[in-house]
Design a protein around this nucleic acid. Sequence first.
DNA 1: CTCGTTATGTACCTATCGGTCCATAATTGC
DNA 2: GCAATTATGGACCGATAGGTACATAACGAG
Lengths: 194, 194
Amino acid sequence: MARPREFDEDEVLDAALRVFWEKGYESAALSDLLVATGLTKSSLYKAFGSKEGLFWRVVERYQRDFLDFRHEALAEPTPRRIAARLLEGVTELHSGRRNPAGCLELNTALSGSTEAEPIRQKLVRGRELFRQRLRDRFEETSATAPLPPGMTSDDAASFIMSLIQGLAAQAKGGVPRETARRVVRAALLSWPES
Amino acid sequence: MARPREFDEDEVLDAALRVFWEKGYESAALSDLLVATGLTKSSLYKAFGSKEGLFWRVVERYQRDFLDFRHEALAEPTPRRIAARLLEGVTELHSGRRNPAGCLELNTALSGSTEAEPIRQKLVRGRELFRQRLRDRFEETSATAPLPPGMTSDDAASFIMSLIQGLAAQAKGGVPRETARRVVRAALLSWPES
DNA sequence: CTCGTTATGTACCTATCGGTCCATAATTGC
DNA sequence: GCAATTATGGACCGATAGGTACATAACGAG
């Protein structure tokens, strides 16, 4: 019983996703978002409340559409297979030519303005949460197949997280996918096969 | 035969270094730099030409004063000792409470505005140059002590570089030094002792 | 056909960005 | 002590940032 929307929310979110992915939260200007989505300022603010509101909707989609491999990875039965699936997933995601280089979340979480500090912290918290889930899965699956000798589940989880961030940073720097693949291979050399 | 400067250039550069380190190039506002250095806009522009001019002077100092361990690392006689010294250096540098969290260069190189794109690229080039030096040293020293079995010098260099970026990103996220140390230990487990 | 409701387009707002201009101050050589 | 030179203080600049106000347009319900 009112005027209908003239835009498709999915399309708008996808367009905004590209912008935030390429530039990070802060460097993505409102004007960039308007051009990319085709919305007017009024429509955007009516629909999403603010730039930050839009951003969190976008992050939601990012996790759903692009980070889904993380769930599959955690479901793997051995530490090595979990780690491999994670690292390979990150490699394919961040260093292809289909998507913007690097990681949407990292690109945002590494900027340093005081304005975006709460956003940064929320992202960091999410990262830590995933690290804990990873550690727990390493702990569980290490009964089936061992971790690299000398590594605790916690060590292993922190190690993999660091590598994931590193790969994302490298990808943003333009390091080619093939190089990333060799890094992953190298990192997994000492991880026992199932 | 002219009016003398009222500021000490070293002190100014150190103060500016902190600001750029904490915020990255873009998020470091000119006003932040003025407050931190105690300079007026006129003096800053007279002395350094522009924000970018000041930034490169600062990077120079950063590399001289804080990345000096890289040279020592490259001088080590075996791959493991090179890698260890590098990773430990990065850990101590980035995740202490003495210095701002994370890496000045990475904090800058991961932001995505089009304005700072040339700066990003220069930093990325510098990183690639160091990677090559690292690879060459791995190649040379692998005669004395082996690399981890299955890794070429190039693999090893890319692996270490990724880990360095990862540690820097983690540090910016507030991951404690002790965790970083455990990551380094884990990463070096398969690297043969000299 | 009108009314309530929601969406859109446009003009406008304040704050801040990096940077420039110019008058004035402090120095040394002569 | 005067001229030449360099440094400083502060007003000013256009561009852009994110965000708001308000009038108008398009719908469904009655």
